[in-house]
Design a protein around this nucleic acid. Structure first.
Lengths: 111, 111
DNA sequence: TTGACGCATTCCTATATCGGTATATATTGA
DNA sequence: TCAATATATACCGATATAGGAATGCGTCAA
């Protein structure tokens, strides 16, 4: 089984991130997304379906349009999983700073 | 084409997140990961390969062992992509209006 | 009612990927 | 050299998914 249908998986697809980024600016009908992304309409609908299934978007009907809007909380598990790692790469930067400082001490400055 | 080989994709697989979480505590040989995760050795090696290819881990040889360690910066794009969304769901919490309006809203077609 | 629009779904094909098993490679030890 | 250990890779089968084309279905306009 390839990667369960969760937010991580939904967001692994660049096109879906693109869609989410567009929806982050506000509610939009499918056709808007089609135009903005340049993808085919069925593809957009299919991506939206995946996003809907993981709770990342929600839709409401308005006449013959279907307006989609973002449900940002669905992305929370991603944020919460990745956040602790941020500390690690920041520590690393600090260490690198130390290393660079040391190199600079015993060495002339160079570009 | 199924989702390019980037950090998002690497992390979409729960087993790989598990491996990263283990490596977050320190450098480990493959066999350690095999034991900790309960997966088969080839599976672990294959997941490690994916993680290596996106720069999320690095290895060094020590005798007949190969020690893997985390390269947390590889996860940075994920953090940076998802972070702005955090503001959105937090705003949502703060704005009781929105929450109430949503509970009241009965016309969404999925819920 | 007819026709156009907006969207979802279905069918199709190509490709990826996962898990499992077997095997290849390299290292260590006797 | 042979055996054992540690890891990577190749191969296999099953499944999933992306994209495209066609189609279904509801809605608006006349």
């Amino acid at each position: 089984m390839p990667t369960t249908a969760d937010a991580f998986n939904a967001v692994a697809e660049p096109r879906r991130r693109e869609i989410l980024d567009l929806l982050a600016t506000g509610e939009r009908p499918v056709n808007d997304l089609v135009e903005q992304t340049g993808m085919g309409q069925p593809q957009v609908s299919k991506h939206l379906r995946v996003l809907r299934e993981v709770g990342a978007v929600r839709s409401r009907d308005q006449g013959r349009r279907r307006l989609y809007r973002l449900e940002p909380e669905a992305l929370r598990p991603i944020f919460e999983w990745v956040s602790p790692y941020q500390r690690l790469w920041e520590e690393r930067f600090e260490r690198l700073d130390d290393v660079l400082a040391e190199m600079k001490e015993g060495d002339g400055n160079d570009g």
